[in-house]
Design a protein around this nucleic acid. Structure first.
Lengths: 239, 239
DNA sequence: GACTAAATTTCGGTA
DNA sequence: TACCGAAGTTTAGTC
């Protein structure tokens, strides 16, 4: 046995059936599939289709053990039995291989990782800068205004100096309205802040969320990401 | 050009950099990675590590176009430029390839799909059958009892005939308590149902969720999946 | 470390 | 088809 200092990813195309027993039990009938074994021992079972999610998988840390098939498994036509186990949770993935069509390994090295830009944080930043989007005379008091039950995305004041708590979401669902409701409940108990009005701002607001907000006297505002961005940099609107 | 009637999955190991522009923008610096192209045109960019989630991907339906690099890209050492676009959303994934280390395709056929067992639905079924777990004299009225704001997992009655709304979660967090609160609020306005008590049942209940539930007069019950299952089938407890 | 909220979420069910 | 909630969610950020 040679110790391997270089991590490799291994790709196997094989006819196999798969059984998982852990937080649930699942079974995949015999078929040709793509198996990916990563350096950390994690295993992915992919079919040709679906989304980025594998049919089955085992998350690291876990160990792969390759066993010879027993008599019954031999008789059923299986040549190798892979057992992937996670010591901590006791999860177990068993891949029964009937035929290996392809098997190759490659050294990928350590990935430098990815750079992300422009999510909810950006929306919040843009709206805080252009809070007048909510109405003439609005001004931003603070972003991430802390309360005992969590930070309010933006605390603002309207033209009459009345406090406004703004909750920002990319997609506005019921949970966002609940979140804002909790903030408002608490803030309205604070004599230094009260009264506090609520604004639920999102790029898209679900009908049920809108109904719930309305029922609670919370104003809904649909945000136009491109328009907000365009205010900062008019050139970007052209592209 | 030969039309291809057989779907294939293609695996490419390549040094590449990746740029995604869509719901967010992301960039991956030049490194060796595994590219999987499925028959439906979807593309997955995997590194050797992380979880089952790719570093980057494009969901179907989408199309892959392979272009020659322009002058600048040539000078930067790129040999192929892959552009994956989704017509509907305008999402765009650009994979700039500096070196192809391996490239192979395999016919996988149509996957028969997987069989799942034992999730939250199962918990609900088990508890509905053994509702006396919540207390002597409890009886199940209905599973998935519909309200205007969604279905209550189980509607039951206690030994005195008082209605009890049960919300079941595998892991009980604050959101689950909020959900149950919404149901209770609505149901208690219905003279035919009121008064309705609440029970928050989960395999695991987070401290903050428990505190919130207590504050609202909702009883918390920790479910023992194995014990519930054991009531159905005593033999299963042995294994 | 525990917990909460977001995710390019994806996936399944139902109205 | 749209909407809603669960997921073997995973992941990132905050307390």
């Amino acid at each position: 046995m040679v110790s391997r200092t270089v991590a490799q990813v291994r790709v196997v195309i094989a006819k196999c059936s798969v059984d998982y027993a852990g937080r649930l039990t699942a079974h995949l009938p015999l078929a040709a599939r793509l198996l990916m074994i990563k350096a950390d021992g994690s295993v992915l079972v992919h079919s040709d289709g679906g989304s980025y999610k594998p049919l089955n998988w085992m998350s690291p840390p876990c160990t792969l053990q390759v066993l010879d098939p027993d008599e019954d498994q031999c008789a059923a036509g299986f040549t190798e039995i892979w057992t992937v186990t996670q010591a901590k949770t006791g999860d177990r993935l068993v891949i029964s291989i009937a035929e290996v069509i392809s098997d190759s390994s490659h050294d990928l090295g350590v990935d430098p990782g990815l750079v992300k830009d422009g999510v909810e944080a950006h929306l919040q930043e843009l709206l805080a800068e252009h809070i007048e989007t909510l109405g003439d005379g609005y001004s931003t008091v603070r972003r991430e205004f802390m309360t005992a039950v969590g930070p309010v995305d933006i605390l603002a004041k309207d033209s009459e100096g009345v406090s406004v708590a703004v909750e920002i979401k990319r997609r506005g669902g019921i949970d966002g309205v609940e979140q804002l409701t909790r903030y408002l409940e608490l803030m309205n108990r604070d004599p230094l802040l009260a009264p506090v009005n609520g604004v639920f701002a999102a790029q898209e607001i679900k009908p049920q969320a809108r109904a719930l907000a309305q029922d609670r006297g919370i104003r809904c505002v649909v945000l136009d990401y491109d328009a907000l961005r365009g205010m900062d940099d008019p050139a970007s609107r052209l592209f």
